[in-house]
Amino acid sequence: MSVAPMQTLGAIAACTGAEALVAAATRLRDAGYVKFDAHSPFPIHGLDAAVGMKPSKLPWIVLAGGLFGASFGYWLQWIWSAVAYPLITDGKPFNSAEAFVPITFEFTILIASFTAVGGMLALNGLPRLNHPAFASDAFARVAADGFFLTVDAADPLFDSHATPAFLAEIGGFDVALLEEPST
C-alpha cells in the first residue's frame, strides 16, 4: 500500500468557550479572513456579526419566486379559460380576474415556499456528504462541549504555516491542519 499525498483543506482550532469563540472570530474577521466559520453546540448572540455574516440574499430570491408564481398561476388559468377552452361558466367573462385570484394566490405561496426551501439549501451548500472539519477527530465534540474555528484553504489569506500560527495567537488551542488524501 502506498501512502497517498495529503491535500490541505484548511485549518482548525478549538476555543475555550462561547466568549473566546466570538473574540477569536472577531480577530479573524478583522485580520481580513473571509472564508472561515465558527462552530458551537448552541446559538451564540453576536456570533453572526463576529464571523462577518452578511444579510442573506434569500429574500430577493423568494420575492422573484413569488412574483413568478403569481404570473404563472394567472397565466395558466387565463390560457385554459380564455384561450384554449373558452366555455361560458355562470355567465362570467372568460378572463375573470376575480375567479383567478385564489389559484394565483396559491401559486404565489407555493412557488415562493419551494424557492425558499430550495434557495436556502443551495445557499447553504446542502446537501453535502462531507465537511473538511470532519477530518479532525476532536471536531466531534462540537455536538457536546466543543467550540471550533475553521479556516477554509480557499481563503485568499490562507497559508499552511501562518494561519495555524495566527489561530494559536488569537486564543485557539489544539490547532491543526485539516487534511485528507488527495485523489
Partner: peptide, 12 residues
Amino acid sequence: SFSQYFLIWYGN
C-alpha cells in the same frame, strides 16, 4: 375584504 367581494361576485 376580498372574501366578501368574491363570494358575492360568484353567487351573483
